[in-house]
């Protein structure tokens, strides 16, 4: 019986030690991290609200994470900054409002941690999401055409519709983001880690 005890207790101990070491202690250290208050009185990072919060849900439900990361590695480690994916490395404080986290581990597509700064154009995002081939020929990103209402040839496009380049795509000449499309784009525009945090200088 004593051997069984050593076995069971030892096994339990190994896992409890790593829960403590890798989950509980880091979390306890992170408790000390607080958002910073910017010169204009707003907090960084800001909580997600309204469209950008819902857009985050859309991002999750589409599984963008399997192709896109949201973490910029430090200067000199990889070429993230030199590729223009951010101006500084990402730090834990950037993610205080992220639940669930969307750090990601795969870069079939570029990093999106600061896509809001890099590509602020809503119409670009609309065209790209509607059909990535329109803006980035040869991309392997899927079409998210179900986030858009299509305007067919001959129909009168609403004032805020976005014209497809060239002769359009098939019958469609203009597109208009629907509710989820607007939310997703609002979320993408909100992704921005340009704010300089002191700990990012390491």
């Amino acid at each position: 019986m004593s051997r069984t005890f050593v076995l069971a207790f030892g096994i339990l101990l190994t896992i409890l030690s790593s829960v403590t070491g890798l989950v509980i202690i880091p979390n306890w250290q992170f408790q000390a991290l607080k958002p910073v208050v910017k010169a204009d009185g707003r907090r960084y990072p800001e909580a997600y609200f309204g469209d950008s919060a819902k857009g985050r849900g859309v991002y999750i439900s589409q599984g963008c994470i399997y192709c896109h990361t949201q973490q910029v590695r430090m200067k000199g480690y990889g070429a993230d900054i030199r590729r223009g994916w951010g101006t500084r490395r990402s730090v834990p404080r950037d993610y205080l409002e992220d639940r669930p986290h969307q750090l990601g581990t795969m870069r079939t597509g570029p990093d999106l941690a600061s896509i809001g700064a890099r590509q602020p154009s809503e119409s670009w995002h609309a065209l790209h999401l509607y059909d990535p081939q329109l803006t980035s020929a040869g991309s392997v990103m899927p079409r998210y055409n179900y986030f858009f209402d299509e305007v067919k040839r001959g129909q009168m496009p609403p004032a805020d519709a976005i014209r497809l380049p060239g002769n359009g795509r098939g019958d469609v000449t203009h597109i208009l983001p629907n509710e989820r499309g607007r939310q997703l784009i609002a979320y993408l525009k909100r992704l921005n880690q340009s704010f300089p945090l002191p700990e990012a200088n390491q």
């Binding site: 989950v23 992170f30 834990p92 992220d98």
Partner: peptide
């Protein structure tokens, strides 16, 4: 422990990422 830390929301942000990959 992993469900508690991630989907049940006991921790967020980077701590959650660590729990996730642990």
């Amino acid at each position: 422990s992993a469900e508690a830390c991630t989907n049940l929301g006991a921790v967020d942000g980077v701590a959650q990422a660590i729990a996730n990959w642990w």
